[in-house]
Amino acid sequence: MNDGATAVPALDVAGVSKAYDTASGRRIALSETSVRIEAGEFVSVVGPSGCGKSTLLMMMAGLLAPSEGEIRLDGRPIDGPPPGLAVVFQDYSRSLFPWMSVRRNLALAAASDKLPKEEVARRVQHCLTAVGLPDAADLRPYQMSGGMQQRVAIARALMVQPQVMLMDEPFAAVDAQTRADLEDLVVRLGQEFGATIVFVTHDIDEAVYVADRVLVLAAGPGRLAADIPVDLGSRRDQVETKLDPEFARLRSEVFQLVMRPRAIVDVPVSASA
């Protein structure tokens, strides 16, 4: 954000579309979307279901190829999961591997770096400490609560020392209290590790609270509806920030953007159906 527009953006989404062939014909999940995300930015992505926000994230992760357009990471086109990029998935029970200890789950993330054993061990400990679980290395995922498992998933993402961290509705499956803790954790880690973070969520409060910038997507077909800077300073607090009038203004602005298209478009369609 601070480097200005002249530098190469961390993530450059250029004219990207994604369409699927389904039994009932071609369905466009995302159409003609362009976004530039600068290094060190914390960007959240919100939108109604079916707006293609997860699709966009999976394409950034190199797990899904765009039908048209291109996504560049540090100027290099993405074709497959790139190095220096980590993903935290929504469902921790299906992204962590339950047949391995926490330690081995984390070490696996560094497997492609061919590091010496001691370095891996050091990094595992460092990342676990960073997410507040310094003593969890020998546990198995199923011995932990959902919130702890998602912390482990975040620690695993940190293992690759990512420049870019993509998070796909990471806290959708945890309770409200844990969720607040995890939001603060992610904000802090973003600042400490200096990583660029793209954070997909369906929770509007969360989108505004964690980010420097909110991208609002609209559905049918999925497209970028708005790009809203969040000017709440770098320090966020669950109580103070959420009492800030600016927070309230942003949240209602995003809320209207998310809800309005549905009110206008969906009603006649469903009425005729």
Binding site: M58, A61, G62, L63, P81, P83, A86, V87, F89, D91, R94, S95, L96, F97, W99, M100, L108, A109, A111, S112, R156, V160
Partner: peptide, 27 residues
């Protein structure tokens, strides 16, 4: 095998071999 596990393994840039032995076979 749940596609989420495969996706998770791919995002970790596991080699084909590691994807088989560490993810697909155990799952």
């Amino acid at each position: 095998v749940d596609e989420s596990w495969v996706r998770s393994g791919r995002s970790l840039r596991l080699s084909r071999f590691a994807l088989f032995t560490r993810v697909l076979l155990p799952a």
